[in-house]
Amino acid sequence: MEVIVRVGDREERVRIRRVEGASPGATHEVTVGERTYAIDAAELAGGGVWSLLLAGQQHEVAVRVRSEGVYEVGSLGRTTAVEVLDPLAYLVQTSRAGKGARRVERVTAYMPGRVVAVLAAVGDEVAAGQGIVVLEAMKMQNEILAEHAGILKAILVQPGQAVEGGDPLFEME
């Protein structure tokens, strides 16, 4: 299988196949860019947690599916969002958005609450970590932040509006 894997701003072409007896214990061969790894991969604990042996080095990772092709990889207490695209889907995405492979990200409310303020306007260029909407719940106010830098494409709520968990708040490009 060949896929494009994206972590933040870094994109790599990744090839992966099962192997048997290629090197002792290896179950898969994975090539990331120019680098090829023989990996002994064991999925543990009913799924979602992997022990990966690479030339004797042991790495434990948790892989969680967020949505189709979007994963959260947890390792040593850190989680990283990773996108996996098949080459055709990747081509479609990059050609549609023009140069720079922009995509629309919809941010939803993580808990029910009330929108108390909108801190930016449609069309604004926002920085990663910038507060976009202020949500109040359980007497606490929390700023909902833009994960990455980009353009604020749409604001889907207004001050005073009550939202449920999962309701869309804004869209970024």
Binding site: M1, H28, Y37, E43, W50, V61, V73, V82, V84
Partner: peptide, 21 residues
């Protein structure tokens, strides 16, 4: 604490591949 920069790429690709298999 990263010991291997390619780790997220390897892990996600493996999980994705095995899911599709």
């Amino acid at each position: 604490r990263t010991r291997l920069d390619d780790l997220p790429f390897l892990a996600a690709a493996l999980a994705h591949f095995e899911r599709s298999q």
